[in-house]
């Protein structure tokens, strides 16, 4: 039973680091920062995976570069800026708010407003039509 439990725990701990290389960090805080940063960055060859989960060779190279930059004392913002300057905004999972992404960020809100407006118009029209209607609700 104990052996089984040990195996289970081992399997779980392996899963948590799947696809990632063992790396040394200056502090646990830095290791946490690294993990968080990877989740915000996209693998450029396997576009629907983040750098935290991708097993692609290029993703590994990008992780090693990020790790190296972190050990050199660069901030998250500097590392992101470097990757954006090489691969474009695409590497960021959350695209920045700028003119070419306004439609992306604001579009859903605008569509929602149009829908609400249309609904209000229809409801008002109905409310106006009802009193004139002799039958009212029973109609």
């Amino acid at each position: 039973m104990r052996a089984l439990l040990a195996m289970l725990l081992l399997a779980l701990s392996l899963g948590a680091h799947a696809g990632l290389e063992p790396l040394n960090f200056d502090s646990p805080e830095q290791a946490r920062r690294y993990q968080e940063l990877l989740r915000e960055l996209r693998c450029t060859v396997c576009q629907n995976e983040s750098l935290a989960e991708s097993k692609a060779e290029l993703a590994k190279d990008m992780r090693l570069r990020i790790h190296q930059m972190m050990l050199e004392g660069q901030t998250d913002a500097q590392i992101k800026e470097f990757l954006v300057s090489r691969y474009g905004d695409f590497v960021l999972y959350a695209p920045p708010f700028q003119p070419n992404t306004w439609v992306l960020w604001l579009g859903p809100g605008v569509v929602l407003l149009i829908g609400l407006g249309a609904m209000l118009m229809v409801l008002r029209k109905r409310a106006r039509a009802l009193p004139a209607d002799a039958g009212g609700i029973e109609d």
Partner: peptide, 13 residues
């Protein structure tokens, strides 16, 4: 060989 210059050039394939 390491692909480091490739990353600097934004090579992804």
């Amino acid at each position: 060989e390491s692909g480091a210059v490739g990353i600097d050039l934004g090579v992804y394939g």
